[in-house]
Write a protein that binds this DNA or RNA. Sequence first.
RNA 1: GGCGCCGUAGCCAAGUGGUAAGGCAGGAGUCUGCAAAACUCUGAUCGGCGGUUCGAAUCCGCCCGGCGCCUCCA
Length: 468
Amino acid sequence: MSTVSLTITNTLTGRKEPFETIEPGKVKMYVCGPTVYAEAHIGHAMSAMVFDIIRRYLEYRGYQVIHAQNFTDVDDKIIVRASELGISPDRLAEDMIQEWMAQTAILNVKPATIYPRATQEIDTIQNLIEKLISTGHAYHVPGSDVFYRVTSFEDYGKLSHRKLDDMLAGSRIYVDPNKEHPMDFVLWKAAKEGEPAWESPWGPGRPGWHIECSAMIQRHLGGQIDIHGGGSDLVFPHHENEISQSESINCGRGLARYWVHNGMLQLSGEKMSKSEGNFVTIRELLDMGGGEIFRFMVLGSHYRSPLAFGQETYDAARRGLERLIGTVRDLDRRDVPGERPDHPLADEVDDVRSRFESAMDDDFNTPVALAALFDLARSINRESEPTPAVRYAQAALQDLAGVLGLRLREPEPRTSDSGPYVDLLVQVRDELRAARQFELADRIRDRLSALGVSVEDSSEGARWRWNA
RNA sequence: GGCGCCGUAGCCAAGUGGUAAGGCAGGAGUCUGCAAAACUCUGAUCGGCGGUUCGAAUCCGCCCGGCGCCUCCA
């Protein structure tokens, strides 16, 4: 095993802690996925990317990562929305899941190891609830729901660092009179006429939101996990409730060693959210060709901080990313020397890699890791000839960027079949330039630019690329 | 009302005790037929006030401003 000194900020303790896995070399990571009732927005994409980056780095560090990401595929909002659309809740959920899978693939998010769904965990969920009732941690109100009894768990509030008493003060507008305590939450929700329902000892109904995660973790990852992740908006009540459910019947073993939460994506100063209606969908982002640009934005600030999405920051990210792409543009992996060249650039690579690793070891400090990559890019660009040392450094740059999930490829052309014609125009223009027909050559360049093609001249002839 | 986070150059953003990484934008150069790209040079004393310290962006207190959670939410 390598002597890794990785540290992670743990929401549970509020501190940065050395990362130690339960099993050597193996990481069990569970990340809360979306409730699939509507198109996902880029806040969801951000969260998926953050944990993708964490996963990639853990794998880079030699860990085997078992990554589970759930889908909440039964819930009030799904039912409401499906009925608005005139389709079944199943259908809606399935469509949204397929879309999520396709979009995260384009965003270069590595597929999770397993994708559990609430509706496929009903047995486990019911068993858990039964156990919670029999141990006095939950109660069934006949004709109503099954609730978790928050006062039965003395650690309630330990994740979000609040006390039950403090939460009551300015809290809810409406409290279900069936609850013993206002903070008690639903484990099993009785179905109304026409709603999706499963038979249970407490009547037909469906699982409450929080219980599915406890069940999935127990069934798919078996007991305690290393990392539990999600957006910071899930700390309370979702993750707090998960802890109480799982730990109250697990004899005090911690559900997860490290609780990791990403900051919220903001749009015009406020949290991006479906219910608030201020959001940019992943589809819109991808239509702009902004998948990798967005990842670059995410990498540009620490994952725990809020990130503001806006045209200015988007453009800045695009330009920065273009610089890195330009640095490895002409790289052909076949030209990369197998041996480390004896050259100052190779020393620079060593130095950059070491800075990259220290940064990532320090609670996944991606802004600092990126800074190291930009320094390497500058050193590479300083070289005028594509020597083996340059190829070596370019490959290293691309590899390290790859650990962050950046592909560093040229943007794809929108019209894929026009390439040969652009080639032709650029060649003709080269000949015009050779004949010193600059006026005509400039006009071609201007016209191509208007069509989204950048032409760059050099002593070896012109090259062109699609603008992002 | 309770809990927590944040406020660093025009913009984004690292940095938690020893005199401020990186990116974008801007300015001046080099290269180029011109441009683009690239390269070189170029900018901040860290929201305000007070305190601790030999020394603070970094610790403490107060104030101002912003955000998140306390209700479904990545």
